[in-house]
Design a protein around this nucleic acid. Sequence first.
DNA 1: GGCCGATCCG
DNA 2: CGGATCGGCC
Lengths: 267, 267
Amino acid sequence: MSTTPKKLKIASWNINSVRFRLELVERFLREEQPDVLCLQETKVINNDFPAGLFRQLGYNFHVIHGQPMHHGVAILSKVPIREDHAHDWQDNGEARHVGALLDCGIRIENVYIPAGGETPDLEANPKFRQKLAFLERMTRWSEKLRQPTVLLGDFNIAPLECDVWNHKALLDVVSHTPVEVDLLTALRQSHDWIDLGRQFVPAPEKLFTWWSYRARDWQASDRGRRLDHVWASPQIASAAKSHRVHRASRSWQKPSDHIPLITEFAF
Amino acid sequence: MSTTPKKLKIASWNINSVRFRLELVERFLREEQPDVLCLQETKVINNDFPAGLFRQLGYNFHVIHGQPMHHGVAILSKVPIREDHAHDWQDNGEARHVGALLDCGIRIENVYIPAGGETPDLEANPKFRQKLAFLERMTRWSEKLRQPTVLLGDFNIAPLECDVWNHKALLDVVSHTPVEVDLLTALRQSHDWIDLGRQFVPAPEKLFTWWSYRARDWQASDRGRRLDHVWASPQIASAAKSHRVHRASRSWQKPSDHIPLITEFAF
DNA sequence: GGCCGATCCG
DNA sequence: CGGATCGGCC
């Protein structure tokens, strides 16, 4: 006896202020209609989160986790959420990670890993130390995980050579240094996570999810990085039927510097 | 022998940041096509003044007088300007007054009189003292003026009862206090200036040029004040053929809290 | 209520 | 480059 497979379309997007980008996010949701949208860098306290827009668009289940000024993550879902939880890997109150258990049994973990500051110097740059510590604590959590989970978000690390526009030029640039890549690899191996980006767009093809605002013409120079990721537990990796990045949105009015990632599952 | 009268259409507008209101000012100029536009509160240093927009619209003669952050006045003209000059009535570097002598022989003096702070208290409020001193120094200048002149701008004083939405309620509010009104009257009498606003819209009809941003519905409550004025030297007052205030612009997108004044002369 | 500049951050 | 916040000003 077989049942119709349940489909689930999940999007992840570092939105760089959800209030400033209401029209952008509305256009994306109308065009792509994901079942679940995971946002990073919402930059808004919970009270000011524009929940109404998402309700209007059919996203009635919200997990909102913000703080004043910086960071902030949220999960907006058309499908019911059974439970949710926030993690604070640094015990410093920063709003960087929320999880939700969907009624269909799938767990989604939405994380915004610290950027890590200007220079990859453990002595001089406390933010870089903080980033590495964050990864290590996530790894301790990840290795104990048993449920089928999608771990996604802005990881602020581009692990592969083909995840950046110029590997050699970026070896000493925070987001692509060997120490960060090693810790991200350890995190991935701690649960045997499947990197769906690279499952669907295998190396050595270049794949980026972020382009700096500072470029005069982001498309012409194409100096991007793959900082955003969707990872799946081994038990559900084969349920992933497609994975795309939404480059077009980088050219919309008032864009985020990150683009959305869209993954479709059929369970 | 008679010659065709020369027509001159002059507009004055406190624009509250010319850069932030490029579309507003463009729409106004396309619709009204004044020969001369006098702006107050441009809030831009001369280097950053959007001169290109005005040139595109046919305003090729510019007198620009700005400072960082605050104040700033400018005259943009389709007709040639023979000479220009800035006044600093306070000797404090504030950009509040520029004049231009048009080729046709008419002098335009464009002034942004200080707002005067919160409370009309000479002891506690140095800005109120500064406003009164500014008026006195202008009066010393005005009484020596001999050329036919149009003196206009944001005077930040509503002199008549019918220049405010509620005379009694505003008697102790800066912009309508007796001491300010007396000094503005002295300034007017020092050159026998003709108040063209009240020549064309005589008291006791209400006439306003400013509505606070804070009103929920500026039109419904209509708590306005006539803070902006166009005055003419006695020799040329009869050349003024019409005078209007442009209320519609207060409802345009991203409006200034002031509206433009439009005066047509025929010499 | 809304603009400006300064400062912090990515 | 372009968000957010804050204090000054109107």
